[in-house]
Amino acid sequence: MKPIKHLYLHFQDGQRLALRFPQQTADPVEIARGLRRQLESPFLSIEVDGDLLLIPRESIKYMQISPAPPTLPEATLTGAELIN
């Protein structure tokens, strides 16, 4: 069974969308490529329950992927903690 990942999309208007999905690949190189492709696209594309969601990138304030993928984008600051 593939590990389950969580994606939280926080939108510019304050709404939040929470999704869970199986790990797409175990290959760190493929993970990095897929993440790069999604970040370069004007739309975030996600298949949900047989439907395709195309979410305009400009509507997204930030994304949270949990747990973090083993391969992170270049120049990622690591070891940070959220504080209030």
Rank of each mutant, 00 (worst) to 15 (best):
I46V: 15
Q38W: 05
P3H: 05
K61H: 12
E74I: 00
F43Y: 15
L17F: 03
A80D: 14
L77Y: 12
I31N: 08
Y62F: 13
L39E: 14
S59K: 08
G14V: 06
L19Y: 03
Q23W: 00
I65L: 07
V48A: 10
A80F: 15
L82H: 10
E30Q: 07
S66H: 03
Q15T: 15
L52H: 03
L54N: 11
F21P: 01
V29H: 12
G50I: 06
H10P: 05
L35W: 06
P69C: 00
N84Q: 15
S45P: 01
I55P: 05
E74Y: 01
E58N: 09
P67R: 10
G34F: 09
G50R: 07
V29Q: 14
R57D: 09
P22H: 04
A32I: 05
T76F: 04
L52S: 04
S45A: 08
L44C: 04
I55A: 12
G14T: 08
P56V: 06
L82P: 13
G79H: 09
P73E: 03
A26G: 08
P3Y: 01
G50N: 09
E30F: 03
D13Y: 09
K2A: 10
R20T: 06
D49N: 14
S59L: 06
Q38H: 07
A68I: 00
H10E: 08
R36H: 13
G50P: 08
D27P: 03
E74F: 01
R20K: 08
T76K: 04
L17E: 04
A18W: 00
P67D: 06
I46N: 08
D51R: 11
Y8D: 06
G14P: 12
A32Q: 13
L77A: 10
Y8H: 09
P28I: 05
